[in-house]
Simulated scan of single mutants.
Amino acid sequence: MTQLLTEPEDKKVNDAINKLNSQEYVGVLNNLASSVMKQTISAPNEATVASIFERELYYFVKKEFDITLNIEKEVTSQDLAIHNFKGRIDAITTNLVIEYKKPEKLRKDKDIRKAQTQLSDYLKQLRKNNENYFGIITDGSFYVSVYFIEDSLKYDAIRQIDGVFFITLIKSILGTNKKQLVSRNIIDDFSLEGHSVSELSNLQKELFRCLNNETKSEKVLMLFGQNQLHNQLNQSLLR
Protein backbone atom coordinates (compact mmCIF):
# COMPACT_ATOMS: atom_id res chain seq x y z
CA MET A 1 0.00 0.00 0.00
CA THR A 2 1.05 3.61 -0.55
CA GLN A 3 2.52 5.41 2.43
CA LEU A 4 -0.14 7.22 4.43
CA LEU A 5 1.70 10.51 4.82
CA THR A 6 3.72 12.39 2.23
CA GLU A 7 7.21 12.61 3.75
CA PRO A 8 5.89 11.86 7.24
CA GLU A 9 7.39 13.86 10.07
CA ASP A 10 7.28 12.38 13.55
CA LYS A 11 7.08 15.77 15.25
CA LYS A 12 4.04 16.85 13.23
CA VAL A 13 2.29 13.57 13.96
CA ASN A 14 3.11 13.74 17.67
CA ASP A 15 1.92 17.35 17.85
CA ALA A 16 -1.30 16.35 16.08
CA ILE A 17 -1.95 13.51 18.53
CA ASN A 18 -1.32 15.80 21.50
CA LYS A 19 -3.85 18.28 20.16
CA LEU A 20 -6.38 15.53 19.48
CA ASN A 21 -5.96 14.32 23.06
CA SER A 22 -6.79 17.76 24.46
CA GLN A 23 -10.28 18.61 25.67
CA GLU A 24 -10.66 21.55 23.31
CA TYR A 25 -10.44 19.32 20.27
CA VAL A 26 -13.65 17.49 21.07
CA GLY A 27 -15.46 20.75 20.33
CA VAL A 28 -13.31 21.49 17.28
CA LEU A 29 -14.07 18.08 15.79
CA ASN A 30 -17.75 18.45 16.66
CA ASN A 31 -17.71 21.46 14.33
CA LEU A 32 -16.12 19.34 11.60
CA ALA A 33 -18.80 16.67 12.07
CA SER A 34 -21.54 19.31 11.84
CA SER A 35 -20.06 20.70 8.63
CA VAL A 36 -19.86 17.26 7.03
CA MET A 37 -23.42 16.37 8.05
CA LYS A 38 -24.81 19.65 6.78
CA GLN A 39 -23.28 19.13 3.35
CA THR A 40 -24.03 15.43 2.94
CA ILE A 41 -27.55 15.20 4.34
CA SER A 42 -29.09 15.73 0.89
CA ALA A 43 -26.26 14.28 -1.21
CA PRO A 44 -27.63 12.75 -4.43
CA ASN A 45 -25.19 9.83 -4.52
CA GLU A 46 -22.35 8.12 -2.67
CA ALA A 47 -19.70 9.78 -4.85
CA THR A 48 -20.84 13.17 -3.52
CA VAL A 49 -20.76 11.86 0.06
CA ALA A 50 -17.23 10.54 -0.47
CA SER A 51 -16.05 13.79 -2.03
CA ILE A 52 -17.41 15.95 0.79
CA PHE A 53 -16.27 13.63 3.58
CA GLU A 54 -12.71 13.28 2.28
CA ARG A 55 -12.36 16.92 1.27
CA GLU A 56 -13.40 18.17 4.70
CA LEU A 57 -11.16 15.63 6.44
CA TYR A 58 -8.21 16.36 4.14
CA TYR A 59 -8.36 20.14 4.58
CA PHE A 60 -8.93 19.91 8.32
CA VAL A 61 -5.82 17.76 8.85
CA LYS A 62 -3.79 19.92 6.46
CA LYS A 63 -4.87 23.18 8.09
CA GLU A 64 -4.64 22.05 11.71
CA PHE A 65 -1.56 19.82 11.58
CA ASP A 66 0.17 20.56 8.25
CA ILE A 67 -0.10 16.87 7.35
CA THR A 68 -1.15 15.64 3.92
CA LEU A 69 -3.37 12.57 3.97
CA ASN A 70 -3.28 9.91 1.30
CA ILE A 71 -6.57 8.04 1.00
CA GLU A 72 -6.61 5.56 -1.86
CA LYS A 73 -9.82 5.50 -3.87
CA GLU A 74 -11.67 2.83 -5.89
CA VAL A 75 -9.24 0.12 -4.85
CA THR A 76 -9.29 -3.21 -6.72
CA SER A 77 -7.24 -6.42 -6.75
CA GLN A 78 -4.63 -4.74 -8.92
CA ASP A 79 -4.11 -1.91 -6.43
CA LEU A 80 -3.98 -4.34 -3.51
CA ALA A 81 -1.67 -6.78 -5.29
CA ILE A 82 -4.13 -9.51 -4.28
CA HIS A 83 -4.90 -11.54 -7.37
CA ASN A 84 -8.13 -13.14 -6.17
CA PHE A 85 -9.65 -10.08 -4.44
CA LYS A 86 -13.21 -9.46 -5.59
CA GLY A 87 -14.87 -6.06 -5.44
CA ARG A 88 -13.97 -2.39 -5.51
CA ILE A 89 -13.26 -0.70 -2.17
CA ASP A 90 -14.42 2.92 -2.01
CA ALA A 91 -11.47 4.09 0.11
CA ILE A 92 -8.63 2.55 2.08
CA THR A 93 -5.87 3.93 4.29
CA THR A 94 -3.64 2.54 7.04
CA ASN A 95 -5.73 -0.25 8.58
CA LEU A 96 -9.07 1.33 7.69
CA VAL A 97 -11.55 0.55 4.90
CA ILE A 98 -14.29 3.11 4.19
CA GLU A 99 -17.47 2.44 2.24
CA TYR A 100 -19.74 5.36 1.36
CA LYS A 101 -23.51 5.30 0.92
CA LYS A 102 -26.00 7.95 -0.10
CA PRO A 103 -28.23 8.96 2.83
CA GLU A 104 -31.33 6.93 2.00
CA LYS A 105 -29.19 3.78 1.74
CA LEU A 106 -28.20 3.88 5.40
CA ARG A 107 -31.61 4.24 7.02
CA LYS A 108 -33.46 0.94 6.68
CA ASP A 109 -32.30 -2.18 8.48
CA LYS A 110 -32.17 -4.23 5.29
CA ASP A 111 -29.96 -1.63 3.58
CA ILE A 112 -27.64 -1.46 6.60
CA ARG A 113 -27.33 -5.25 6.64
CA LYS A 114 -26.57 -5.24 2.92
CA ALA A 115 -23.83 -2.63 3.39
CA GLN A 116 -22.41 -4.59 6.33
CA THR A 117 -22.30 -7.74 4.23
CA GLN A 118 -20.42 -5.93 1.45
CA LEU A 119 -17.86 -4.45 3.85
CA SER A 120 -17.52 -7.72 5.76
CA ASP A 121 -16.69 -9.50 2.52
CA TYR A 122 -13.86 -7.03 1.86
CA LEU A 123 -12.48 -7.40 5.38
CA LYS A 124 -12.59 -11.21 5.18
CA GLN A 125 -10.73 -11.20 1.87
CA LEU A 126 -8.07 -8.85 3.22
CA ARG A 127 -7.69 -10.96 6.35
CA LYS A 128 -7.12 -14.10 4.28
CA ASN A 129 -4.16 -12.27 2.81
CA ASN A 130 -2.79 -11.36 6.26
CA GLU A 131 -4.13 -7.79 6.07
CA ASN A 132 -6.05 -7.05 9.26
CA TYR A 133 -8.31 -4.07 8.56
CA PHE A 134 -11.38 -2.67 10.25
CA GLY A 135 -14.04 -0.74 8.41
CA ILE A 136 -16.71 1.91 8.55
CA ILE A 137 -19.75 2.55 6.41
CA THR A 138 -20.90 6.18 6.35
CA ASP A 139 -23.33 8.45 4.57
CA GLY A 140 -21.72 11.55 6.06
CA SER A 141 -24.22 11.75 8.91
CA PHE A 142 -24.16 8.26 10.37
CA TYR A 143 -21.69 5.42 10.45
CA VAL A 144 -21.51 1.71 11.19
CA SER A 145 -18.31 -0.01 12.34
CA VAL A 146 -17.33 -3.52 11.26
CA TYR A 147 -14.28 -5.18 12.76
CA PHE A 148 -12.69 -8.41 13.91
CA ILE A 149 -12.39 -9.51 17.51
CA GLU A 150 -10.04 -12.46 17.27
CA ASP A 151 -11.56 -14.48 14.41
CA SER A 152 -15.12 -13.20 14.62
CA LEU A 153 -16.60 -10.23 12.81
CA LYS A 154 -18.46 -7.76 15.00
CA TYR A 155 -20.88 -4.97 14.09
CA ASP A 156 -21.58 -1.84 16.10
CA ALA A 157 -25.01 -0.24 16.01
CA ILE A 158 -25.46 2.69 13.66
CA ARG A 159 -24.34 5.97 15.25
CA GLN A 160 -24.27 9.64 14.33
CA ILE A 161 -20.84 11.01 13.51
CA ASP A 162 -19.45 13.45 16.08
CA GLY A 163 -16.21 14.87 17.41
CA VAL A 164 -15.18 11.66 19.16
CA PHE A 165 -15.69 9.75 15.91
CA PHE A 166 -13.38 12.11 14.01
CA ILE A 167 -10.76 12.18 16.77
CA THR A 168 -10.55 8.38 16.73
CA LEU A 169 -10.66 8.31 12.93
CA ILE A 170 -7.83 10.83 12.49
CA LYS A 171 -5.66 9.09 15.08
CA SER A 172 -6.11 5.84 13.24
CA ILE A 173 -5.41 7.37 9.84
CA LEU A 174 -2.24 8.98 11.12
CA GLY A 175 -1.07 5.49 11.92
CA THR A 176 -0.06 6.24 15.49
CA ASN A 177 -3.19 4.82 17.03
CA LYS A 178 -4.30 1.40 15.82
CA LYS A 179 -7.44 1.40 17.93
CA GLN A 180 -10.61 0.40 16.16
CA LEU A 181 -13.63 2.64 15.86
CA VAL A 182 -15.61 0.64 18.37
CA SER A 183 -17.47 1.78 21.44
CA ARG A 184 -15.21 -0.20 23.79
CA ASN A 185 -12.20 1.88 22.76
CA ILE A 186 -14.13 5.13 22.93
CA ILE A 187 -15.09 4.29 26.51
CA ASP A 188 -11.44 3.57 27.34
CA ASP A 189 -10.34 6.95 25.95
CA PHE A 190 -13.15 9.08 27.36
CA SER A 191 -14.24 7.29 30.53
CA LEU A 192 -13.94 8.82 33.98
CA GLU A 193 -11.66 6.11 35.33
CA GLY A 194 -8.13 7.40 35.74
CA HIS A 195 -9.24 11.00 35.12
CA SER A 196 -11.10 11.83 38.33
CA VAL A 197 -9.60 15.32 38.65
CA SER A 198 -9.59 16.24 35.00
CA GLU A 199 -11.76 18.93 33.48
CA LEU A 200 -13.37 16.27 31.30
CA SER A 201 -14.25 14.27 34.39
CA ASN A 202 -15.77 17.29 36.13
CA LEU A 203 -17.76 18.17 33.05
CA GLN A 204 -19.09 14.62 32.73
CA LYS A 205 -20.03 14.46 36.40
CA GLU A 206 -21.80 17.83 36.27
CA LEU A 207 -23.72 16.83 33.16
CA PHE A 208 -24.80 13.58 34.80
CA ARG A 209 -25.84 15.42 37.96
CA CYS A 210 -27.94 17.90 35.99
CA LEU A 211 -29.61 15.21 33.94
CA ASN A 212 -30.26 13.06 37.00
CA ASN A 213 -31.78 15.89 39.05
CA GLU A 214 -33.89 17.49 36.35
CA THR A 215 -37.46 16.50 35.63
CA LYS A 216 -37.11 13.93 32.90
CA SER A 217 -38.10 15.57 29.64
CA GLU A 218 -38.56 13.51 26.47
CA LYS A 219 -35.07 14.50 25.32
CA VAL A 220 -33.45 13.60 28.65
CA LEU A 221 -35.22 10.22 28.67
CA MET A 222 -33.94 9.64 25.15
CA LEU A 223 -30.37 10.33 26.34
CA PHE A 224 -30.72 7.87 29.20
CA GLY A 225 -32.15 5.27 26.83
CA GLN A 226 -29.28 5.73 24.39
CA ASN A 227 -26.77 5.44 27.23
CA GLN A 228 -28.38 2.23 28.44
CA LEU A 229 -28.27 0.77 24.92
CA HIS A 230 -24.64 1.90 24.60
CA ASN A 231 -23.73 0.09 27.83
CA GLN A 232 -25.51 -3.08 26.71
CA LEU A 233 -23.63 -3.06 23.41
CA ASN A 234 -20.31 -2.69 25.18
CA GLN A 235 -21.07 -5.47 27.62
CA SER A 236 -21.81 -7.77 24.70
CA LEU A 237 -18.52 -6.81 23.08
CA LEU A 238 -16.56 -7.49 26.24
CA ARG A 239 -18.04 -10.93 26.82
Rank of each mutant, 00 (worst) to 15 (best):
E150T: 14
L153W: 02
I173L: 08
T176C: 06
Q180E: 14
T117V: 11
E104W: 02
D156M: 02
R159I: 05
L169N: 12
L153A: 11
K105C: 05
K110I: 09
I186H: 05
K105E: 12
N129W: 10
Q180Y: 12
D162H: 10
V182A: 08
K178V: 10
D151I: 02
Q125M: 12
L169E: 12
K108A: 14
S141W: 03
Q118H: 04
F165K: 06
K110C: 05
A115N: 01
D188W: 15
G163A: 14
R159F: 10
G175H: 11
A115G: 02
S145C: 04
E150F: 12
Q116G: 04
V146N: 07
I136F: 08
F134E: 09
Q180A: 13
K101S: 00
I158D: 04
D156Q: 11
F142D: 08
D156S: 15
N130T: 10
A115P: 01
I112V: 12
L181N: 00
T138Q: 05
I158W: 03
S152H: 10
R159V: 00
A157R: 01
S120M: 08
I137E: 05
K101E: 06
R159W: 06
G175L: 10
K154D: 01
D139H: 05
Y143E: 00
E104G: 02
Y100F: 14
I158N: 05
K124L: 10
Q180C: 11
T168H: 09
D189Y: 15
Y147V: 03
S152N: 10
I158K: 13
S120Y: 04
K105A: 07
I112S: 00
F134S: 11
Y122E: 13
I98V: 15
N132L: 14
